[in-house]
């Protein structure tokens, strides 16, 4: 495993970035008082100082405390929505690919229609309709409600090609049940794809949640990276030159996306060893 990581430098770099962010959040929680992330816990609009290393925002939140809280919370939304999406999408894809016929046709129709509609818009509609003080986990569920579509499409295509392989035929001829073939023959061979799809789904879910939050449809009282950007936009922090307010969330989000992107590129390499990079 370690030897493989040394060769797959993209995967290593991506994992390191995400690990660094988690270490920041973990250590930060131990050495810094995160209660200062609440509004009115300090003087407003202060640039970075010893007392507040990242300064404070317009409502007197200590931004270091906010970042320590927000980084894992945003990751949590992405992980919850992403894993639900991949689990549901994979289950549907496997059943559709294995059964074929009408089940497959219906699944494909629903996925085709669903993927044509820009997901952010449906999420906006859903979030506006619910409009009752959502919790962070419920918000992740809202995002997950569309996160299964893309995994369903890609996993179905992979499962269809695996289904035709000789070892699946052998298992079928030797009388294995449908569930057994799906879980013992097809599933293990899908694992590298599943991992890559999962990382993609997490990153898409984080992007969607931040999008909703910037538009003001997030959990307003929660300290997430997207909500911080919402306040940045709401109070025009840019026009007041309060760089300490918007740079930390921007940098953390950028590191998060680059980390996830590198991991998914690295996993892609793992899934298709033949597709070696030309450069």
């Amino acid at each position: 495993m370690l030897r493989y990581l040394r060769r797959n430098r993209q995967l290593l770099a991506g994992l390191t970035l995400i690990a660094l962010l988690l270490v920041f959040a973990g250590v930060g929680r131990l050495v810094w008082d995160t209660a200062q992330g609440a509004p009115l816990s300090g003087p407003p609009n202060r640039p970075p100082s010893w007392e507040h290393p990242l300064g404070t925002d317009r409502q007197g939140r200590d931004l270091l405390a906010v970042m320590i809280e927000a980084t894992p919370l945003t990751l949590y939304i992405g992980l919850l929505a992403g894993s639900l999406g991949v689990a549901i999408g994979t289950a549907l894809a496997l059943v559709a690919a294995y059964k074929g016929g009408r089940v497959d046709a219906i699944m494909r129709g629903v996925v085709d229609v669903g993927l044509t509609i820009p997901p952010l818009l449906l999420l906006i509609l859903l979030a506006v309709s619910l409009n009752t003080g959502l919790t962070v986990s419920q918000m992740a569920l809202v995002v997950a409600s569309l996160a299964w579509l893309f995994p369903a499409r890609t996993i179905r295509a992979q499962a269809l090609s695996i289904k035709e392989r000789a070892y699946v035929q052998v298992a079928r001829l030797s009388g294995a049940s449908g569930a057994k073939i799906i879980f013992l023959e097809i599933m293990p061979n899908l694992l590298p794809y599943l991992a890559a799809t999962f990382v993609g789904a997490v990153s898409a879910a984080i992007l969607a949640s931040i999008g909703l939050e910037i538009l003001g449809l997030g959990v307003i009282e929660a300290n997430t990276l997207g909500i911080t950007l919402y306040w940045v936009n709401y109070y025009s922090a840019l026009l007041h030159g309060m760089w300490w307010w918007f740079l930390p969330p921007v940098i953390i989000i950028i590191l998060l996306f680059i980390g996830l992107f590198l991991i998914s590129a690295g996993l892609d390499d793992l899934a298709n060893p033949r597709r070696r990079r030309a450069v």
């Binding site: 992007l207 840019l238 760089w243 918007f246 921007v250 950028i254 680059i258 992107f261």
Partner: peptide, 29 residues
């Protein structure tokens, strides 16, 4: 490739700060 992993609006925030706020080359909004 690195830029393509960044959401549009984040890049926008950074661009506004550099070119509109600091350098004052272009309008802010």
């Amino acid at each position: 490739l690195t830029l393509s992993a960044i959401p549009f609006f984040l890049l926008g925030l950074v661009l506004i700060y550099i070119f509109a706020f600091q350098l004052r080359l272009l309008p802010l909004f």
